[in-house]
């Protein structure tokens, strides 16, 4: 369940392009045609799916304060988290090269479609951003880190696919000359981001509501109990009065 929740959250609510502006440079540069956009998008999903879990392991067993404790109790005080930027980017750069070599060896057709984009990806901020957000959001398990990597990649893929399709069509529209190209792309992305904001309440909204209802029900119950108590008190008092009156 939490996998599913994280999956939809990272695709729609925390979409890398529309909510955090990660990977904007290649998003703008490679979105002129749908086919190239699909190639880059697939490469991003692929690399995020590998680097986020890998960096999660690095973070968990080397970088976090006290993470080195598996080496022995005397290492418990070490805090290497200041090294995380350099470790993450080194992992990403090496992984990208490694992936390139492996893909070239085992699947030439995939290499031909992804090939030229792979080196580009090492400096795509979506990849490093994925690892840094994984660290700052404190994702608890390796499985969730994998889900997070894959789903943020899918979110990025969707975004670049959508803008590439729109840019192919907008060529036939009459855009003011000064806005052509970059300007109109920014404004369209802005409008798409507004659209994606409407996903915001998708996961959290329902939950909060039920909590509130529970609270009100509890409050009503407490009020009812209080009223009942008072009614009983009044009954007792009136009974007592009655008995005293009878006695007199």
């Amino acid at each position: 369940m939490e996998h599913l929740e994280l999956f939809f959250k990272s695709i729609f609510i925390d979409n890398m392009v529309f909510a955090t502006f990660l990977g904007m440079c290649s998003y703008l540069a490679v979105s002129k045609k749908v086919t190239t956009a699909v190639g880059l998008g697939a490469a991003v999903i692929f690399v995020l799916a590998i680097t986020v879990p890998l960096n999660w392991l690095l973070d968990q067993y080397i970088l976090q304060p006290g993470a080195l404790v598996w080496l022995g109790p005397e290492y418990a005080d070490y805090d290497l988290s200041f090294l995380s930027f350099i470790m993450f980017i080194a992992t990403i750069a090496t992984m990208v090269q490694l992936v390139e070599i492996v893909v070239e060896k085992f699947s030439p057709s995939l290499y031909n479609s992804l090939g030229i984009f792979l080196p580009l990806i090492a400096v795509n901020c979506a990849i490093l951003g994925g690892s840094l957000f994984m660290q700052s959001r404190e994702i608890p398990t390796l499985g969730l880190a994998l889900t997070y990597g894959v789903s943020s990649g899918i979110g990025w893929f969707l975004a670049i696919l959508a803008i590439a399709a729109i840019r192919e069509k907008i060529r036939y529209s009459n855009v003011p000359p000064a806005l052509r190209g970059l300007g109109i792309t920014f404004i369209i992305t802005g409008l798409m981001a507004i659209g994606f904001m409407s996903f915001g309440g998708m996961l959290t909204g329902g939950e909060e509501e039920t909590v509130v209802e529970d609270k009100t029900e509890q409050a009503i119950q407490i009020e009812k109990d209080k009223v009942d108590d008072k009614v009983k008190e009044i009954e007792k008092l009136s009974e007592a009065e009655n008995t005293t009156a009878l006695n007199e």
Partner: peptide, 11 residues
């Protein structure tokens, strides 16, 4: 909010 940054930059 985030989207306005894009639109301001576009302008």
């Amino acid at each position: 909010l985030a989207p306005m940054a894009l639109i301001v930059l576009g302008i």
